[in-house]
Simulated assay, not measured.
Amino acid sequence: MENKIININIKAFLEKFNEEYGFLYDNYDQVAGYTEALEAGDSFIESHLDFVKEFNNYRGDILSSDREVVAFMFTLESMEVA
């Protein structure tokens, strides 16, 4: 699968990711679109490995939970990347 380039401010992306993660945490993951975002996450991450690696390196951690993947996908959507 092609590794597509994403050009975005990584600092702003991390800030929004943290907001989305907090929202999911506060609502016990019971939010509209959770399942769909999780299902789309694997495919998106696979086709955008460079960006995911850059984000992981900047963040200092990998996306290791379902909630993190969903927060990542919600962030992409809210920043109109995906």
Rank of each mutant, 00 (worst) to 15 (best):
A37V: 05
Y34T: 06
D29Y: 09
L76R: 02
L38W: 08
Q30A: 13
N57E: 09
R59V: 01
A12F: 03
V52I: 10
A37P: 04
N57Y: 01
F74I: 03
V81C: 04
F51M: 01
L38P: 07
S65E: 04
H48C: 02
A82C: 05
N3F: 05
D61L: 09
F44M: 00
F13C: 08
E46K: 15
F72M: 03
E2P: 14
S78R: 15
E54A: 13
L76A: 00
D66S: 13
K16D: 02
I6L: 10
F74E: 09
V69A: 14
D66W: 03
D42L: 07
I8T: 09
I62L: 12
T75N: 05
G60K: 01
G22H: 05
L14E: 14
G22L: 12
A40L: 13
L14D: 12
E80F: 09
G22S: 10
E46G: 04
E20Y: 00
K53H: 09
F17Y: 14
T35C: 01
V69S: 13
V31W: 02
E19R: 11
T35R: 14
F17M: 06
A40Y: 06
F44D: 03
L38S: 02
F74G: 02
L49T: 14
G22N: 15
V31S: 00
A37S: 15
A32G: 11
M1L: 06
F72K: 09
K53Y: 06
A12E: 15
V81M: 08
F44L: 03
N18L: 13
L24E: 12
F23Y: 12
G22C: 05
N9K: 06
M79Q: 09
K53C: 01
M73K: 12
